[in-house]
């Protein structure tokens, strides 16, 4: 069965990282997991990975509230880089914010597939992975 090659998790909360990694592993639908503790580190990686589209993640789970470069700033730079990527990168915002201003703002950005309120469950992850796999086969 085909698996998703790379999933990228951007979140400053190390415990959330551990939990999410474990949940992703349990779905058994993903080969690699990339972890970044803030947007800046993630965007630097993506910049270098553009040249080699195999290294680009298939799915990004992005937190909003982070030190140094937060989710919104990451999105700004991600949108600039997006036209240069020759691979479809699906992006989800995963945040504990229930502020409608955040949710509306996120949904107005075309590059954002959806806004998921934490905590994200194994079932949610599995359904996302299956949808993306279906799209990749099509």
């Amino acid at each position: 069965m085909k698996k998703i090659e790379t999933v990228c998790v951007i979140d400053d909360d190390d415990i959330y990282q551990i939990i999410t990694t474990k949940e992703i592993e349990e779905t058994a639908l993903v080969n690699n997991i990339l972890l970044f503790s803030d947007g800046e580190k993630a965007i630097r990686y993506i910049e270098t990975a553009i040249a080699e589209s195999k290294k680009l993640p298939d799915i990004i789970f992005l937190d909003l509230n982070m030190p140094v470069m937060d989710g919104w700033d990451f999105l700004d730079e991600f949108l600039v880089l997006k036209p240069k990527m020759n691979k479809k990168v699906v992006l989800y915002i995963v945040s504990s914010s229930i502020d409608n201003r955040d949710i509306d703002k996120a949904r107005s950005i075309s590059a954002v597939t959806d806004f998921i309120i934490k905590p994200i469950t194994k079932n949610q992850l599995a359904s996302i992975f299956n949808t993306v796999l279906k799209q990749q086969r099509a």
């Binding site: 959330y16 939990i19 914010s97 934490k118 905590p119």
Partner: peptide, 22 residues
């Protein structure tokens, strides 16, 4: 403040629930 409460309390509580599940 409402936003902060929501965010800063939901995060760790969510983590606790997830950790218990694991």
């Amino acid at each position: 403040f409402a936003y902060i409460v929501s965010h800063n309390l939901r995060s760790p509580v969510g983590n606790l629930v997830s950790l218990k599940g694991l």
